[in-house]
Design a protein around this nucleic acid. Structure first.
Lengths: 230, 230
DNA sequence: CGTTGTGAAATGATTCACAGCT
DNA sequence: AGCTGTGAATCATTTCACAACG
């Protein structure tokens, strides 16, 4: 029964139903809340209870989950344990993602020491920097490699994700290097749009754009966390 | 006509037409591209040219701008200079936003030294930390203040925005302190939903949620920057 | 002409309403 | 009774199509 359930999920996913972007963003929140409740020793939740905490309606949660098959027990709710592992599977968190970090400046250092990254299946398997003064030194307990080693190390270590925390001028070249070395996804912290065609997926985290959005909301006088979002 | 155009905008904005969230997010990108072209010495753009660079359709841009009145010259396009200052005004970037940073760990330090913040109208007017070992020291050329001084300093210096870069356990308390001291907007880096009611606006930047979204895309095999977003 | 600004149409996401399971 | 899963309805956003303009 559990075997065929996994099969359902995979079949549905590979039939290339397009999962809505907003749904994906929420999935992460669901998993977090599920883990929190599991850690608290709880066993079951209803979609309403789950949503309460994270500001999402019960219908929304059920609709989101329905993209991936059947999860719950009608009349009862969801088994946290089960829901957790299905979500982890969907989000690709049932494996370890080897990640290359490029740019070991203050932002890179912050990322290296950011708890959640290290803990939740994202292993920073190599760190690179173009600054010769940094190369060879240890930062946050990690040896910094020269850019020249990037291609070889990414290949040898089967690294699939890249984190770009270099100045914006260097972001595009860095992305190209990573992709040429075989990386499939890039988390970009530079405030630029990376042009990658269909060679990889990109997700950008843009601090200053967000601060601007905040300033806009405040200056409109729109109090209230209208769009906590993410 | 230009005087009344500004009037139109303000009237439209205060008549509380609800500006769509996605529009606000794009406005920031438009301003960036406009500034880039201004710096390159250009004088005019059409919506199509503007969109090319940042991956947005011309219609989308015109629709977005139309929320704020008339901007362009039919048959010609937009005057970069004019468009830039209108966008700056809309986004609240025609003033300096005094900001309090709470949490001077590595992430806080990265934020302090993040160029765009400092340059684009966001002044970090005070930095706080709960760690007594940090308080009183200088980090990235800024003196770290104790939490006990937060309320007084935020009031005295007319600080309107707060940046929360503390561990997630401390995020909610920190937000409450900031709001009680009069802050109207919070940029939250902790991976939790802040409960602020209608007392302030919140925008959250959640690194690990984003990495998860990336892992999801990659594991789905969805190559291509489907959702560069932000 | 080429380009803006905008109603109208199309697409996408959320909420509603309820059938069906436990 | 309580709750899930989902088609149908509503609401939001994007795209289309075109009139008006310089």
């Amino acid at each position: 029964m559990s075997g065929s359930a996994v099969g359902d999920k995979i079949r549905k996913m590979s039939s290339r139903q397009q999962i809505p972007g907003p749904t994906v963003k929420r999935l992460t929140l669901y998993l977090r809340e599920v883990d929190r409740r599991l850690a608290a020793g709880e066993v079951r939740v209803s979609s309403r209870q789950l949503g309460q905490e994270i500001g999402v309606t019960d219908t929304q949660i059920r609709k989101d989950l329905s993209w991936f098959g059947q999860f719950g027990q009608a009349g009862v709710g969801y088994l946290l344990d089960d829901l957790g592992s299905r979500l982890r599977q969907i989000l690709g968190k049932d494996r370890t993602w080897k990640t290359a970090l490029v740019g070991a400046g203050r932002l890179g250092q912050a990322i290296m020491s950011y708890g959640p990254f290290a803990r939740e299946g994202f292993e920073i398997a190599a760190v690179f920097d173009a600054d010769p003064r940094l190369v060879g030194t240890e930062v946050v307990k990690r040896r910094i490699r020269p850019m020249a080693d990037l291609d070889r190390l990414v290949r040898d270590r089967d690294i699939l994700l890249g984190i770009v925390s270099v100045p914006k001028e260097a972001a595009q070249v860095t992305a190209d290097l990573l992709i040429d070395a075989g990386v499939l996804g890039i988390l970009n912290f530079a405030p630029v749009r990376l042009e990658v065609g269909d060679r990889a997926s990109v997700v950008t985290v843009d601090f200053s754009a967000r601060l601007e959005q905040l300033a806009f909301q405040v200056s409109l006088g729109l109090k209230g966390s209208i769009d906590v979002d993410e």
